[in-house]
Design a protein around this nucleic acid. Structure first.
Lengths: 251, 251
DNA sequence: CACCACTTTGGATCGCCGATCCATCCATGC
DNA sequence: GCATGGATGGATCGGCGATCCAAAGTGGTG
């Protein structure tokens, strides 16, 4: 609750800060820069300018630029996962978790690249853990659960990477998402229909394309595929919550 | 022996020295550098050294470093897609295409990042096109085909991004893939089993983890889900659980 | 209150990168 | 021949991440 150095115009070159720097403040500022100008807007120089400090002060709290990026990504992800509302239906809960991550990456496209870079970070472990438990609730047998969780994570990361790439390309021109799609559709429409019948025919759907809806369609495809992994038990199946056993292998 | 090879179709624009620089040679050398030392080994300086030339000569054939990376990626992908053997069974053919891309990215991990960066490149169009046709052969209705193809592509890209990240992290220490997995497993094993039951239990499977097998398991999950998109013509209603009726709100 | 060891800060500096610019060189057309 | 213009090699620029160090504050000790 100290006085925030929000005053901008003051050219007085403070010999030293009065309120101390902290790793958290640095990470928060880094997130601002990233949200404002994309992944390449986060430079040490920009950080020193916005924080009115020097390189040494920053490197005293942060080991690396990669460390900074990772911390920013962790911050976003943990916040998102904490906000996901639980649901009794595991299928719906899985959708919630996935779409929560999707929305977060849509709002902060740089997170996509960060997630792909280090998918084993603590923040992602919570993601894995949530998915794993929900798969168990869906009666996916344990041996298949690991593969299924990895598949879902990979799918989300793939969409994230595409979103991040699209957003990066849209940066610069402030054209809308629709204009970008229109541009892509126009390019695709120019293709030779004989050589590319599918892509050419897809132009119509591309024009009314909705990233989020397509993402959800993919999630539903995945969920349908997952359901088939349930063991063909002799008992009347399709009863939710009938996890037959709980091996809990010690180690 | 004169090195006059590569009969050019345009003699009027013959380069000064046929054995001299060309865009193709530059791209090939770039691929060598990338395969040898990873993504960050491709520097203009390294290129000038290996090609025994200067910056200007390179920039005369290549507009940008991004252009160079894109060209290298396109080169790998087109070569891979050309080598995929066709198959009469569309399901098997889809697996072939996907696993061909997987193997290529496994051999050249830097391709993963390149693919995610610009997924609409001509090389990827062929990928989309192949998948689209095979989905048609699978009797996926046209409206759902586009989403299904996007889902598959996103999944492959997600795996690609992860592979690239893992390979990038392994670079530096020449430890084997197994050692890397062992390291990750050890870290995961230290987790609190109460807070992370799923991840903790997954350690066993992580130790005997096989990227390729898990990738194929994911492909099968998606293929199973996609197959369910077929209109219920003759088959009995498979009733994929509590999946919504897919109301398809027209606009 | 005086002293000093230690922490935190600010900025000069280094090496490397991508990109640009320009003088030179040489195959070819006149 | 010889001028022309594309192709070439390298000097150079601005910006980046990272390192290093002196100055400025902080707290403990007598």
């Amino acid at each position: 609750m100290a006085k925030r150095a929000e005053a901008e115009k003051e050219p007085s070159r403070a010999p030293r800060r009065t309120d101390s720097l902290s790793r958290e403040l640095i990470v928060r500022t880094a997130i601002e820069l990233l949200d404002d100008g994309g992944e390449k807007a986060l430079t040490l120089r920009a950080l020193t300018v916005r924080l009115r400090t020097g390189y040494g002060a920053i490197y005293h709290h942060v080991t690396d630029k990669g460390d900074l990026l990772t911390a920013a990504t962790d911050d976003i992800i943990t916040r998102v996962l904490a906000e996901v509302v639980p649901d009794t239906d595991p299928r719906q809960a899985l959708r919630r978790v996935a779409v929560g991550l999707f929305d977060a990456i849509d709002a902060h496209p740089w997170v996509g690249a960060g997630l792909s870079r280090e998918p084993w970070r603590p923040a992602m472990l919570n993601f894995y853990e949530s998915i794993g438990r929900l798969l168990e609730a869906l009666a996916v047998p344990e041996r298949a659960r690991f593969d299924a969780a990895g598949t879902l994570v990979n799918y989300v990361l793939g969409v994230a990477a595409q979103n991040a790439a699209n957003a990066r390309d849209r940066a610069g021109d402030d054209t809308d998402k629709a204009a970008f799609l229109e541009n892509a559709a126009a390019r695709w429409a120019e293709l030779d229909p004989a050589r590319y019948p599918f892509v050419h025919a897809a132009v119509t759907q591309l024009r009314e394309h909705d990233d989020r809806k397509q993402f959800l369609a993919g999630i539903d495809i995945f969920l349908t595929g997952i359901t088939a992994l349930r063991p063909p038990t002799t008992a009347p199946d399709t009863a939710p919550g009938t996890a037959p056993q709980h091996p809990t292998p010690n180690r």
